[in-house]
Simulated assay, not measured.
Amino acid sequence: MAFIGTLCLILVLTALAAHLCRRIGIPGVVGQLLVGLIVGTGGLQWIHSDELIHIFSEIGVILLMFLAGLESDMALLRKYFKPGMLVAIFGVIFPLLLGTGGGFAFDVTKTEAFFLGVVLAATSVSISVEVLKELQAVNTKEGSTILGASVVDDILIVLVLSISLTFLGGNQGNDQSIGITLLQQGIYFVLIYLLVKWIAPYLMHLSERIYTTASVIIMSLVICLGMSYVADFVGLSSVIGAFFAGIAVGQTKVKEQVFINVESIGYAIFIPVFFVNIGLEVELSSVVTYFPFILAFVVIAVISKLFGGYLGSKMAGFSNNSAWMVGAGMISRGEMALIVLQIGSQGGLIPEQYFAPMVITILISTLVSPLILKYFAKKVLKHQV
């Protein structure tokens, strides 16, 4: 029963922390991470990560990626395909290159340096969307491009992550030859195509005809968890299966119903545990010890996305101010980068001593992104008046 008390404490503290953060204009996820920092081994030592917290955390990250897939607007992607694709491609290449170079500067292995770049390549525009809503700029060319690019960015990161786990040693303990692994993964991506095109629509339609309470939600979770399990079985990360399951269910007419209910399930229990669990593993003393690393990677995190987005937008024919606004909208890392970081840590692809500094880097880049976006957005909107 000790875990029940721990879970209750986590839920109360994360709810209060997220509320307070949002009241002062800070993303709620920051508050949840801070709870982990404060009550974990680096702070008050009230909570220690154990098997049950780890399991809840795993379910939380799967549901989080499923929701990310559900939110991926394919219609928006098609409408702003060219600028969104260019912004996303350069917004992944620049952080990969600069992040890898930064890793070399701090004397880590080639594999670890590359994966540090992968972490920085992730984008989470949920915070940018809040700023765009506040400025009534969601439906502008720039706002729509940011949203479209975020869809492409998510897909690119999931693909880069799956390739990284296959070739960089993230599948430790798997004795199969690389050829068999690649064949299995190729079959899996064929399955994803079939899922999006036919299987998910059929299963969701079938679920509406089953006389069981919440049958639609149950079926969506079966698809999510099933695809996560199969992804893990073929040597990919479980979150990759969850993400594409979300895209598949998101193409059906029950998308909104599923999103509302799964969001409630996830954010009520499992997702807060995921963010707290990351904070539990962070030693606050590392801020001082690794300050040069944190400073360097915060600069890389901001500059790489800002200039990547700018260059992609300019190639798509945007004006200077518009291009800077799009680049600023891609800076925030948020939960996507934390997910990639956690997976890399579990696969031995992130240097153990740099895990905590990377969490802090993600936090800082997420906090400064709204300020930079507001600065450039106001410039654009002033010229449009």
Rank of each mutant, 00 (worst) to 15 (best):
S220R: 13
S220W: 13
L221S: 07
C224A: 13
L225K: 06
L225I: 10
L225W: 06
G226I: 13
M227T: 14
S228R: 03
S228G: 04
A231W: 04
A231C: 05
A231M: 04
D232K: 15
F233K: 15
L236G: 04
S237L: 03
S238N: 07
A242F: 02
A242V: 06
F244M: 06
F244P: 01
A245L: 06
G246S: 05
I247S: 09
A248G: 10
A248K: 09
A248S: 12
A248F: 05
Q251T: 15
T252P: 11
T252L: 07
K253N: 14
K253C: 10
V254E: 13
K255Q: 15
Q257C: 01
Q257I: 05
Q257D: 10
F259R: 15
F259E: 15
F259T: 14
I260T: 15
N261C: 09
S264G: 11
I265E: 03
G266Y: 01
Y267W: 12
Y267P: 08
A268C: 12
F270I: 01
I271E: 04
I271W: 02
I271Y: 02
P272A: 03
V273Q: 03
F274R: 09
F275G: 03
V276E: 02
V276D: 00
I278Y: 02
I278A: 03
V282D: 01
E283H: 09
L284M: 06
L284K: 02
L284E: 01
S285Y: 04
S286H: 09
V287N: 00
V288L: 09
V288N: 12
V288I: 13
T289C: 03
T289D: 10
T289F: 11
Y290F: 11
F291W: 13
P292I: 04
F293G: 03
I294N: 10
I294H: 11
L295V: 07
A296L: 07
A296Q: 05
F297P: 05
F297N: 09
V298F: 02
I300F: 00
